Amino acid sequence: MKDFQIFLDSIGESDKRERMESILNNIKDMFPQLNEEIKWNQPMFSDHGTFIIGFSVAKGHIAVAPEAVVISLFEKEIEEAGYTHTQELFRITWTDNVDFELLYKMVAYNIEDKKDMTNFWR
């Protein structure tokens, strides 16, 4: 998590910082092979040089960006979890429960689907 520490330290409110840290730690624990990166001032995980999932912090939510194809594939589950979404991301408000199983499914999907990719983005 040392790669993410500067990002986490920049989150002024401790409850928001702890929530973001919890999400990042859970993904790292479940998928220890993933690389931690900060790009565009956002924490993200990559695998063999290809993007897997990224996050950003906004006033009212954490934005989760697994790429548009993943949003499309998991749209029903995202909505069932109570999250709003766009084509590129979904939002976990600061008061929402974090559906870690959904996050794990998305990460696992990207790892498998992108195993032979050499580009960062799809």
Rank of each mutant, 00 (worst) to 15 (best):
Q33S: 14
G60T: 03
Q5P: 02
D3V: 11
R17M: 09
K76W: 04
I52K: 05
F90V: 01
A63S: 13
K115D: 07
K2M: 08
R17C: 08
S14G: 00
N26Y: 10
D3I: 08
T50G: 09
W121M: 14
N35V: 06
N41E: 14
M106P: 06
I53W: 12
M30F: 04
T118M: 01
E21D: 12
T93E: 03
F31W: 08
P66Y: 07
F100L: 13
D3F: 05
K114V: 04
F90E: 02
W94S: 04
I11D: 03
A58G: 13
K114Q: 10
P43N: 06
A68S: 15
E101G: 10
K115R: 15
H48S: 08
W121P: 00
A68K: 15
I62D: 06
E77N: 09
A108G: 15
K105T: 08
K28H: 11
R122P: 13
D9E: 11
M1V: 11
E67T: 15
E80S: 12
D113L: 03
K39N: 05
M20C: 09
W40V: 00
D3K: 10
N41V: 03
A108I: 00
I11Q: 04
Q5R: 08
I27M: 03
H85F: 13
Y104M: 11
L8R: 04
F120L: 14
N25G: 07
F31M: 09
E80I: 06
K105D: 13
N26C: 10
L34A: 04
E37P: 01
A68G: 14
K76S: 12
A58I: 00
E13K: 15
L24S: 05
W121F: 15
K105W: 03
I111V: 12
E18Y: 05
E75I: 09
A81I: 05
M44A: 04
E36Y: 06
N110H: 12
T95R: 12
F100W: 03
K76I: 10
S14W: 01
E21P: 02
I92S: 02
N110Q: 10
I78Q: 02
R19I: 06
D9T: 05
V57F: 00
F45R: 03
S56Y: 00
A68M: 11
I23P: 04
L89A: 09
N97K: 15
D15V: 07
P66E: 13
D15G: 00
E80V: 03
L89P: 01
N97S: 14
G60K: 13
F31V: 11
K114H: 12
I27V: 15
